[in-house]
Design a protein around this nucleic acid. Structure first.
Lengths: 340, 340
DNA sequence: GCTTTTCGAGAGAGCGCTCTCTGGAGCGTC
DNA sequence: GACGCTCCAGAGAGCGCTCTCTCGAAAAGC
């Protein structure tokens, strides 16, 4: 005769809790959901029974019954994950996850691959209550695709096309560039160039404008800007071109840390010392800035805070989809190090 | 009289599809799940109806009925997300997500905060079918906590304690260190030091052993190793100490790129050129290595592949939990650049 | 003392799907 | 021609929870 099989260790259900507490399933549900119209002794009994049985509500059943999911999607692209500097998605991710956890929601990770339409289908397929999109704005047409999707969507950064019809959380790029340029001026630099990003990106346009305006306000001449593509090599090329035009350069504002790494390499190769001969300020305050030689001053974006704010905005939209596009712009800061 | 309310645009259910196709719900379900015993004409009708109605199965209902979730958890820690070099989680994440998507599962992101027990409760709470843990091994006691959790767990990297009772995917750290050291020997270096990691981490122990063994095999003396804590500043301190003991150093193997950044800074400050005076090899092949001045040779771990493999292993364990701990070790490679 | 109101809680109908059970055709067999 | 098979497909019972409906009992009102 075979030994008795071990107790199947089925997870406790609400039914079990109700039975153990001597109340109906409905009452147990009320207690666990904080409905106030329950006699105190019943509340205690249910709480105790739930604890004793190690009861955890089955989220699938709950979601089915409620028609809500208590989970939101986080959309990243494979490309960005591979190429973006560390902080760009790690920090917002951290902020968003913290905010989501605090509200006991869960976050589903979605990697948008080449087939972005699949993503739209997924979002319309009633899996999540809303979506957070953290991708490089210009590298995607997600905003176009997701417009009028079944669930609300919040973007990190202003979408390039038709920004007014989307909800987003952004940082003040113009202000950040002003901060950096003003710092260089304050340090006594007089020939302050810039390595700007591609001008089909709003971010890059704003940063260029901030640099230009501060120079103008101080009556300083603006060297012709050079452009990079937000890569290290692009930054190196741009720096070489800038030095060719303005060998007397004594300061440079670079629109990203990654480009600044290339720029530092070229400055070193040309025999110039940083900051003695040329002061450099990057943008992003990424790990690259912190570990550069010398550690580099850089414009810091409140990325983690942005992630949290994205969740706030998304929940607001989930609660009231008609609240229309919500836009929030946060100020940039300057992380001062030894390159100025 | 109020206008008729707009059609509620309720999502199509299986019932709707079945009705449109003129079959029962059961048959529609069969078609959509690829059960072969269905007449061809019915298959067509159901497929067409599903397409017409834009039918997407409700995952909550499916999960409830099947008792499976088709989703796995990805566990990261806040700390790691903040401090680890870019590639350390981005690449495995990418590999894992790709593998998960390919099998049309979904990935739920879990940030393990200070309260790691909450994580255990979550995993036992029947939300996911299994978990992937991508955290710095020594910074956590997750393995202890998650042992005998309700669902299978696969770790990136060998857990420090009691590794034999856990499933993991790791890379051959000893072999990677051998690769790097052999490269330095081959380049004609004769005084080859190492900046090792904390010796309470298995990874660091293995890397140190690889370096030592290769030197011994070539009959080269091994300078006393110096230790860093896997930070840039730690690497800088270690480098300074190493130079103090062995001013004649002409090669150094550093157990992480981040520490190598600090080392490069100190080498530059001491007036030594890389690679002319001292050759440097890092570990991780992160963006730091690629953007360093000069671009640095580094040991590359197949992190993306590891992420994919983790998913394979996890699915295998979900299918057969009794398959016992599964261990997989992948070989390291060398990414050659200009620092040797 | 009887009716009305309020409060607390049970019954039970779903939510959308899966999957077992059952049964009707259509075919071959003796 | 009765019987047994195989092949398809419908009926319907859940999966675990929420939430409306309903109702008894206690409190309040006249």
């Amino acid at each position: 005769m075979p030994a008795l099989p071990p107790t199947p260790r089925r997870a406790a259900t609400l039914e079990d809790v109700a039975a153990a507490a001597g109340v109906s399933r409905a009452t147990a549900s009320r207690v666990l959901n904080g409905v106030p119209t329950v006699r105190a002794s019943a509340v205690d009994a249910v709480r105790r029974a739930a604890a004793d049985l190690g009861y955890r509500p089955n989220p699938a059943a709950r979601s089915l019954a409620r028609g809500r999911h208590d989970s939101i999607a986080l959309v990243l692209t494979e490309r960005d994950l591979a190429e973006l500097p560390h902080s760009f998605f790690a920090e917002p991710l951290r902020g968003a996850t913290a905010a989501v956890t605090r509200r006991s929601l869960q976050m589903v990770l979605l990697l948008a691959g080449p087939d972005e339409a699949a993503l739209r289908r997924y979002l319309d397929g009633s899996h999540v209550d809303g979506a957070l999109v953290i991708v490089e704005a210009h590298s995607t047409n997600l905003p176009r695709l997701l417009r009028s999707s079944a669930v609300p969507v919040v973007y990190l950064g202003r979408p390039v096309e038709d920004p007014d019809s989307h909800s987003y959380v952004d940082v003040d790029n113009y202000g950040g560039a002003r901060l950096a340029t003003a710092e260089l001026v304050q340090a006594g630099r007089r020939v302050i160039g810039t390595i700007a990003g591609p001008q089909d990106m709003g971010v890059a346009v704003d940063r260029l404008a901030g640099w230009r305006d501060v120079l103008a306000e101080h009556g300083l001449p603006a060297p012709t800007p050079v452009y990079g593509n937000f890569t290290a090599d692009g930054g190196a090329n741009a720096m070489a071109r800038l030095l060719a035009t303005r060998p007397d350069l004594d300061g440079v504002f670079v629109a990203s840390d990654l480009m600044a790494m290339g720029a530092l390499r070229v400055l070193a190769a040309s025999g110039r010392r940083v900051p003695e001969d040329v002061a450099v300020i990057g943008y992003d305050d990424s790990i690259l800035a912190r570990t550069a030689t010398p550690p580099m001053t850089s414009v810091r974006q409140p990325l983690e805070e942005m992630g949290e704010l994205m969740v706030d905005v998304l929940l607001q939209l989930i609660a009231d989809p008609a609240a229309g596009p919500v836009r929030r712009i946060l100020p940039a800061q300057l992380a001062r190090r030894e390159s100025v």
